[in-house]
Amino acid sequence: MADEGTPVVFVHGLWLHATSWNPWIEHFRAAGYAPVAPGWPHEPETVELARANPDAVADIGIDDATAHFASIVEGLGRPPVLVGHSFGGLITEKLLGQGIGLAGVAIDPAQIKGVLPLPLAQLRAGLPALGNPANLHRSVSLTEKEFRFGFGNALSDEESAELHRRWTIPSPARPLFQAAAANFVLHSQAAVDTRRADRGPLLLISGTADHTVPDVVTRSTFKQYRDSTAVTELKQFEGRGHSLTIDHGWREVADAVLGWLREQGIS
């Protein structure tokens, strides 16, 4: 990768396929970076294949996914920028806390151990998985209505339905159970080293209308880093929901990330 720009690894969260990052990949490549968007462990290569084989990703936990992406990073030869959305944001935080990665951007990151707020909207958004304890070992899909509440609540009905049709896939429910129980488990997989001082800079991004990871949760996550001297910043997007990486306004978010990276001297 010696002739390419700084590598960027995009990490998606639950219920979206890795190819949902394709517009970001093109945008970052045009800006001089060398982006990739790997899937989670065993994730089929296309949305269609993922829907046809939902059990492929069943029972995958946070540590499984984190180790998977750590291995990908190791194979790049150069420390990358990590950009994650939702549970991909939590994985980004975990990797950065392990000293992996040049910098991290966690967009609407799933809550880490130590975060206490649990808004009703977040509880409702998690019900498709958490509503049945047997889902711990299963993969779960979102209906169009469930996606509308959890992702597309700030969008028109038509745009939300189109995003559901285009990008949604079955995802493992285990990470949701792990995050929900994090504050009651001594060695939770949702734990992040928020005190580390020698890590790369971290940007947390929230959408103020997000139901799945409400703004108050991201703000509480930001406070967990108060004992670290490393660069940690928070940016909020007014009126944006959990779909902010894939909806019509994705470029505004992507440009904000690119601008922040330039401010950190990373190009």
Results as ranks from 00 to 15, higher is better:
Arg138Asp: 12
His85Val: 12
Leu90Glu: 02
Thr221Pro: 06
Pro170Tyr: 06
Arg124Pro: 06
Pro54Arg: 03
Ala173Glu: 03
Pro54Ile: 07
Arg78Glu: 15
Gly249His: 15
Asp210Pro: 05
Val185His: 00
Pro41Trp: 10
Ala191Gln: 12
Gln122Lys: 14
Leu155Thr: 10
Pro170Gly: 09
Val192Asn: 00
Gln178Ser: 09
Ala182Glu: 02
Val213Phe: 04
Trp250Met: 01
Ala34Lys: 12
Glu43Trp: 10
Pro128Trp: 07
Asn153Gln: 11
Leu258His: 14
Asn132Arg: 13
Thr92Asn: 02
Gly77Val: 04
Thr221Asn: 09
Ser20Tyr: 15
Ala197Gln: 10
Asn183Val: 11
Ala121Pro: 05
Gly239Trp: 02
Gly259Tyr: 01
Trp167Asp: 14
Ala154Asn: 13
His68Met: 09
Val83Asp: 02
Ala106Glu: 05
Glu4Val: 13
Gln178Ile: 08
Leu16Val: 14
Pro175Cys: 08
Ala52Ser: 14
Pro172Val: 06
Pro119Gly: 09
Asn183His: 04
Gln178Lys: 08
Val73Lys: 04
Glu26Ser: 15
Gln98Val: 08
His68Gly: 11
Lys94Glu: 02
Trp24Cys: 03
Pro117His: 13
Gly249Ile: 09
Thr218Trp: 03
Asn22Leu: 14
Gly75Asn: 13
Asp63Lys: 09
Pro201Leu: 00
Asp193Lys: 01
Asp255Gln: 07
Val253Ala: 02
Ile169Pro: 05
Gly97Cys: 01
Arg262His: 07
Ala179Pro: 01
Leu123Met: 14
Leu130Thr: 04
Ser71Trp: 06
Ala65Gln: 14
Glu48Val: 11
Asp59Ser: 15
Glu45Met: 12
Asp108Leu: 06
Leu258Pro: 05
His137Tyr: 11
Arg138Leu: 10
Gln111Trp: 13
Ala256Arg: 02
Leu16Pro: 07
Leu123Gly: 11
Leu76Ile: 03
Leu14Cys: 10
Gly207His: 01
Ser139Thr: 03
Ala50Asn: 07
Leu204Ser: 00
Leu203Gly: 00
Asn132His: 13
Pro117Thr: 12
Gly126Lys: 11
Glu4Ile: 09
Leu82His: 00
Ile100Lys: 00
His42Val: 13
Thr232Leu: 04
Gly114Ala: 08
Arg199Tyr: 01
Ile62Trp: 09
Leu130Glu: 04
Pro119Lys: 10
Phe177Ile: 04
Trp167Cys: 04
Leu202Ser: 00
Asp227Lys: 13
Ala37Trp: 10
Trp250Lys: 01
Leu96Trp: 00
Thr6Lys: 11
Asp227Ile: 05
Ile112Trp: 09
Phe151Glu: 04
Ala129Met: 03
Gln224Pro: 03
Ser267Asp: 14
Trp21Thr: 01
Gly88Trp: 11
Glu4Cys: 09
Arg174His: 05
Gly152Asp: 08
Ala56Glu: 13
Asp227Leu: 15
Ala65Val: 14
Arg148Asn: 10
Leu176Tyr: 11
Arg240Ala: 15
Leu76Ser: 03
Asp3Tyr: 10
Ser71Thr: 15
Gly75Thr: 07
Trp24Glu: 02
Thr168Leu: 02
Gly239Gln: 01
Pro201Met: 00
Thr46His: 14
His85Glu: 11
Asp157Tyr: 08
Ala125Arg: 10
Ala125Gln: 05
Ala121Val: 12
